[in-house]
């Protein structure tokens, strides 16, 4: 009996991500959810700009590559045109929380019936490790070589906390993929974010605290420890908004 294998919705190709980068885990979780809900044939995914720019090669559903930060606007167009289809975006912290902030906030405010998978690893990975809107205070990056000085460039943006103040969004949750327990919880949240769309409930965003061993300058194992000891205390896990929490229990 097969206990674990590659989900069908995940393409059978090697991923380009660095060793130990948890993008691959999150890709797999999304694909598993697509399989379990039986929606691959009607799903359209939107890839961002950043490390996961080539996510369009990794999912077997139809895929669109968007301009930097614009995935929620592209998803809005697709969903308005094809309301029966399932539309998700997959975006990193630079894409979603910096250049695409307006698109993020407004698609949430409209309660656009889409699913947003937001990867927060506190750094711009693709361009070689620059400070992200979610880089931690004091975090050393290529563009904050002396550590992020909040007096100079401000504080990290907590997307879940911010979006949960809006009336619009249906579901906003933060999860992590640094250990087996958290990966399983992450999958549950991602599944709910897709189910909400299937059920017509509206904008569902799952922020996934992820790692970047290469640009953090840590081994894959140490990077996951850093997620636990530094990231999660600053970005507490949990459900920040769930309009139908009671009916789901």
């Amino acid at each position: 009996m097969v206990i674990f294998d590659k989900p069908h919705a995940l393409a059978d190709v090697p991923l380009h991500y660095c060793p130990g980068c948890t993008h691959g885990i999150i890709h797999r979780l999304v694909a598993e959810v697509i399989d379990e809900l039986g929606i691959e044939g009607k799903t359209v995914g939107i890839a961002p700009v950043g490390c996961s720019v080539m996510a369009y090669n990794y999912f077997n559903c139809d895929m669109i590559e968007a301009a930097h930060g614009r995935a929620p606007a592209v998803a809005t167009g697709v969903k308005r045109a094809l309301p029966e289809n399932i539309v998700f975006t997959y975006q990193g912290d630079g894409d979603l929380a910096s250049i695409g902030m307006a698109e993020t906030v407004h698609s949430a405010a409209r309660n656009e019936n889409i699913t947003v998978i937001f990867i927060n690893n506190a750094i711009y990975g693709m361009t070689g490790g620059q400070m992200a809107p979610t880089s931690l205070p004091g975090q050393i990056t290529q563009t904050s070589p002396y550590g992020r000085d909040v007096n100079h460039c401000g504080y990290p943006i907590k997307i879940c906390e911010m979006l949960s103040t809006l009336d619009g969004p249906e579901y906003v949750a933060r999860v992590a993929v640094n250990n087996v327990k958290n990966v399983r919880a992450a999958k549950k949240a991602i599944k709910k974010a897709f189910e909400n769309q299937v059920n017509g409930l509206g904008f569902s965003l799952v922020e996934v605290i992820s790692s970047c061993p290469t640009n953090w300058g840590l081994t894959p194992e140490k990077a996951l420890e850093w997620v636990e000891s530094k990231m999660i205390p600053y970005y507490p896990l949990g459900v920040y908004k769930d309009r139908h929490a009671d009916s789901n229990e």
């Binding site: 097969v2 206990i3 674990f4 294998d5 590659k6 995940l10 090697p14 991923l15 991500y17 130990g20 980068c21 948890t22 993008h23 691959g24 885990i25 797999r28 250990n179 087996v180 990966v183 399983r184």
Partner: peptide, 10 residues
């Protein structure tokens, strides 16, 4: 579950 490259079948 933790493999980022989905190379393990169980």
């Amino acid at each position: 579950t933790m493999c980022p490259d989905c190379i393990i079948k169980v």
